[in-house]
């Protein structure tokens, strides 16, 4: 019962959504539209569930004094501060439970939630991703050891694309005569992106698309049941 009903729900819902594409009239079109609205609302609750689970997991780590447990206190505090600021005083265009925070805005310059977002969150996010530049450089050193034809192609394509998108690359080949303009680095970069890269991306998209279609069918028909969890 606990497993069969969810399987029936998945089957009916999946089939209705697919049928509505081919029969967009009543009742399928309307049911499908309503289901997509429901999906949005339940997905919202799923995100809330994720945040609450993060809170719970961190709380357990602190309670049982797991390794580096002190740092998880910081996670919880920053989570509570961000949520409180957002819910009590709202965001840029949305009032919170305590109104629009005019008095705080006149002192700080923006709402507390936006202040935290602009001055801490954005900086942390940008720095965290920029950190990857260093790791990508070290990964490139290992990946670009040109031993085979495949790694040579990878190396040459990456270098040409990078050079073609910088002013240095453009200035290196700007002296080329008109009839050899196709060898100008920005043109080579554009050619690589337009033709061979598109071909590779299309092959991946078609392969992945077929895989997703197969997986969707397996789920709708109840062959794939791992999402229900084990019991």
């Amino acid at each position: 019962m606990k497993r069969k009903i969810p399987l029936v729900i998945t089957f009916i819902v999946g089939i209705v959504v697919i049928i509505s594409e081919f029969i967009p009239h009543k009742p399928f079109g309307r049911i499908s539209g309503e289901l997509e609205n429901w999906y949005l609302i339940i997905a919202g609750f799923a995100i809330i569930l994720g945040q609450m689970n993060l809170f719970k997991v961190n709380l357990f780590k602190i309670r049982y004094k797991q390794k580096n447990w002190q740092f998880y206190i910081i996670t919880l505090i920053s989570f509570i501060i961000m949520v409180s600021c957002g819910l009590f005083w709202g965001t840029e265009n949305n009032p919170g439970l305590f109104g629009n925070a005019e008095s705080i805005t006149s002192v700080v310059g923006s709402k507390p939630f936006d202040y935290l977002f602009d001055n801490i969150y954005q900086h942390l996010q940008a720095t965290m991703f920029s950190l990857l530049a260093f790791f990508i450089a070290s990964a490139a050193y290992r990946a670009f050891i040109a031993r085979t034809l495949e790694s040579n192609l990878l190396l040459i394509a990456a270098i040409l694309v990078m050079l073609g998108n910088t002013s240095l690359g453009s200035s290196l080949t700007c002296w080329l005569p008109e009839n050899l303009k196709f060898l100008h680095l920005p043109n080579i970069s554009s050619f690589i992106m337009k033709f061979p890269t598109t071909a590779g991306q299309r092959a991946i998209m078609i392969g992945a698309g077929l895989g997703i279609i197969g997986s969707s069918l397996r789920i709708i028909l109840g062959i794939e049941r791992s999402y229900l969890g084990g019991e």
Partner: peptide, 24 residues
């Protein structure tokens, strides 16, 4: 499991159509 079943069913139906059209 009931709401998850609804989400998975809707997602499977939407993805089946979307990827069939756009990716294949």
């Amino acid at each position: 499991r009931f709401p998850i079943a609804l989400i998975i069913g809707t997602t499977s139906g939407i993805f089946f159509l979307r990827y069939l059209k756009s990716d294949v």
